[in-house]
Amino acid sequence: MGMPNRKYADGEVVMGRWPGSVLYYEVQVTSYDDASHLYTVKYKDGTELALKESDIRLQS
Rank of each mutant, 00 (worst) to 15 (best):
W18P: 11
I56D: 01
P19I: 02
L38S: 07
K44A: 11
K44V: 09
S54D: 13
S21E: 07
Y43N: 07
A50I: 15
Y25I: 11
T30C: 11
G11F: 06
Y24R: 02
E12G: 02
L51F: 02
R57A: 09
G11E: 03
Y43H: 10
E48N: 07
H37C: 12
D33I: 04
D33E: 05
I56S: 00
S21G: 11
A35H: 12
E48D: 06
R6C: 04
V27E: 00
G11R: 03
T47D: 03
G20V: 02
V13R: 09
Y8W: 09
V13K: 09
Y43T: 15
L38K: 08
S54W: 08
S36Q: 10
K42A: 07
K52Q: 11
R57E: 12
G2M: 07
V29N: 00
V27T: 03
L23K: 12
K44Q: 10
G2R: 01
D33Q: 03
D10A: 05
V22T: 15
S21Y: 04
V29F: 00
T47H: 07
A35G: 09
G11V: 01
V14F: 02
P4S: 10
W18H: 07
G16L: 09
Q59N: 13
L49E: 04
A35M: 11
S21K: 08
L23F: 13
N5D: 13
V14E: 00
S36N: 11
Y8H: 04
D10M: 06
S54N: 10
L38N: 06
G20I: 02
R17A: 04
R17F: 03
T40V: 09
E26S: 08
S54R: 08
W18M: 09
A50E: 14
L23M: 12
P19Y: 04
A35F: 11
I56T: 01
D33W: 02
M15G: 03
S60N: 12
K7I: 10
K52T: 12
G20T: 04
N5G: 14
S31C: 06
V29P: 01
S36K: 11
Y25V: 14
E53W: 04
T47W: 07
S31G: 15
T30P: 00
V13L: 12
D34P: 13
T30M: 15
Y32V: 01
T30N: 06
V41E: 00
D33F: 02
V29H: 00
Q59W: 13
Q59T: 14
V14Q: 01
G16Q: 02
V27H: 01
D10H: 05
W18Q: 08
L49Y: 14
Y39A: 00
S21R: 06
L49I: 13
S36W: 06
R57I: 11
A35I: 15
G2S: 08
Y39C: 01
Y25R: 09
V41W: 00
A9D: 08
R6S: 03
